[in-house]
Amino acid sequence: MKRRKLLGYAGAGLGASLGMGMIDQAQAQTTGVTIRSLGHTSFLFTGGGRRILVNPFRRIGCTAGFPSPAQPADIVMISSRLFDEGYLNELPGEPRVLTDPGVYDFENLRIQGILTPHDRQGGRHFGNNTVWRWAQGGVNIVHMGGAAAPLRVEEQILLGRPDIMLVPVGGGPKAFDAAEAVQAVQVLRPKIVIPTHYLTTVAGASCELDPVDNFLALMPGTPVTRAGQGALTVRPNDLPSQGMRIQVYQYPRA
């Protein structure tokens, strides 16, 4: 693996979080963000002049049949050091890699990582998970990574109300199941919900996740859009003016 710049803890807090509003306004004139599903919790976000890759994985178990998520990117964010959320060996180029909670400032971009447990035992089994929050192309995004514990009040304050929330729904020992995902969605009240981390037909036999339909069944009355392709562009004007909708991506195949 090539030598990479790993950015460590940069300080976090409510004051830093509130400061994101100025950056959000600066980006509001841009043309939106293109969100490409790479499988599992991995997505590539392109907009505002940047490519941000979240949670590249090793193809094994639940991710066995996906193509490699290693895409050219300027910034790579990982939610944990586990193989399904933090496999960096195949990445091309020299992206900045964010691994720890904290506040990271770039030109016209602030990214905040917020620490949560990666299991239902306070992180004692699988350690911690980093939830990522940032604004890109005038759209406020929260990627929950592999969150497994209910959101505490301080986490709710830091995360605010996102335009887009990517949330794990398939359960297992280290991420929300369908009911837990619904609870998190009801707390943050995003405008668009993108389910992640669920069973697909490309998973290996050892995968113990539940399908996305378990989550959808617990969200009756919420409009669901199923994408016919693996990438969609969301502009500020595309966001629902009231309520929320669920966006289910077509996942890639190797």
Rank of each mutant, 00 (worst) to 15 (best):
K2F: 11
R4N: 05
L6Q: 05
L6V: 11
G8P: 01
G8T: 02
A10M: 10
G11F: 13
A12K: 07
A12E: 13
G13N: 06
L14A: 06
M20F: 12
I23P: 00
Q25F: 13
A26W: 13
S37E: 13
L38A: 11
S42P: 01
S42D: 10
G48C: 02
G49D: 07
R51H: 12
R51E: 12
L53Y: 02
N55L: 02
P56A: 11
P56R: 03
F57T: 06
F66E: 06
P67E: 12
S68N: 09
D74S: 04
R81D: 10
G86A: 03
L88Y: 08
L88P: 04
R96I: 14
L98Y: 10
D100Q: 14
V103W: 13
E107Q: 13
E107N: 11
R110K: 12
I111C: 10
Q112N: 03
G113H: 08
L115E: 14
D119G: 03
G122K: 03
F126P: 00
G127N: 03
V131A: 08
R133M: 04
R133A: 03
R133V: 03
V142C: 04
H143K: 05
G146K: 07
G146P: 00
L151H: 09
E155M: 02
Q156P: 00
V167L: 06
V169G: 08
G171W: 02
P173D: 01
P173H: 07
K174V: 01
E180D: 13
R189C: 10
V193Q: 09
V193S: 12
L199R: 14
V202L: 09
A203I: 05
C207R: 11
L209T: 10
D210K: 15
V212H: 13
D213R: 15
N214V: 06
M219A: 14
M219R: 15
G230M: 11
L232R: 12
P236T: 07
D238C: 00
D238V: 00
P240I: 13
G243W: 12
Q247N: 00
P252Q: 10
